[in-house]
Amino acid sequence: MNADLTEEEMRRALFGTAERESQVPAVPVQEPVPEVVFARPVAAPVAKKKVAKAFTQRLKVTLRVGNVFEGETYELIHEADTLSSLLAEQEAVKAARKKYKYVEVVSVKSM
């Protein structure tokens, strides 16, 4: 190995020749692209098909409701689309509380 390298030779070995630095590649000029507007074709509205719902089990919740404590009560029936009797009961009580002050659950039955 040659240990007597000059500084210029070392620079060329590490960084390459100085000629490459002077040659800068020209940037290609892009031609302006004409503006094109895409319009969607007007199509007649398509009627959406109704998907038939699968049969879901419903629960019938029977409530005894009233607005007077130990007064006149009415029987109210609420139908819930759930399998959980607890959720059906909570849903029925929540709906009945909007109109009545006193709500008592009588039964929860499957339909």
Rank of each mutant, 00 (worst) to 15 (best):
residue 19 E to I: 01
residue 6 T to G: 10
residue 80 A to I: 02
residue 35 E to R: 12
residue 97 R to V: 02
residue 81 D to V: 07
residue 62 T to D: 07
residue 78 H to N: 03
residue 101 K to Q: 14
residue 111 M to V: 08
residue 72 E to M: 06
residue 27 V to W: 11
residue 61 V to S: 01
residue 66 G to T: 06
residue 33 V to W: 08
residue 75 E to I: 11
residue 42 V to W: 07
residue 61 V to M: 03
residue 64 R to F: 03
residue 1 M to F: 12
residue 92 A to V: 01
residue 49 K to L: 14
residue 92 A to F: 03
residue 78 H to A: 02
residue 86 L to Q: 13
residue 77 I to K: 14
residue 54 A to M: 06
residue 17 T to R: 08
residue 77 I to Q: 14
residue 105 V to A: 02
residue 19 E to P: 00
residue 40 R to C: 04
residue 80 A to T: 00
residue 18 A to L: 09
residue 95 A to P: 00
residue 48 K to W: 08
residue 53 K to V: 08
residue 81 D to P: 00
residue 63 L to N: 03
residue 1 M to T: 12
residue 76 L to C: 06
residue 17 T to Y: 11
residue 84 S to C: 03
residue 13 A to V: 05
residue 37 V to G: 04
residue 100 Y to S: 02
residue 86 L to P: 00
residue 24 V to F: 09
residue 2 N to T: 10
residue 83 L to T: 10
residue 43 A to Q: 15
residue 76 L to P: 02
residue 75 E to C: 04
residue 66 G to N: 03
residue 79 E to L: 12
residue 32 P to K: 13
residue 12 R to M: 10
residue 63 L to I: 04
residue 83 L to N: 08
residue 12 R to H: 13
residue 14 L to M: 13
residue 1 M to H: 14
residue 5 L to V: 10
residue 94 K to L: 09
residue 17 T to Q: 09
residue 10 M to A: 11
residue 106 V to Y: 01
residue 71 G to H: 01
residue 3 A to T: 09
residue 79 E to W: 14
residue 80 A to E: 02
residue 64 R to Y: 03
residue 21 E to Y: 12
residue 8 E to Y: 09
residue 40 R to P: 10
residue 55 F to Y: 09
residue 67 N to G: 05
residue 48 K to M: 09
residue 12 R to V: 06
residue 42 V to C: 04
residue 27 V to G: 05
residue 46 V to W: 09
residue 15 F to P: 04
residue 88 A to E: 01
residue 47 A to L: 15
residue 70 E to N: 10
residue 30 Q to C: 08
residue 39 A to V: 11
residue 73 T to V: 11
residue 6 T to Y: 07
residue 56 T to D: 06
residue 102 Y to W: 15
residue 3 A to C: 10
residue 41 P to V: 08
residue 77 I to N: 15
residue 75 E to V: 13
residue 102 Y to F: 15
residue 92 A to G: 01
residue 89 E to C: 05
residue 78 H to S: 03
residue 70 E to C: 06
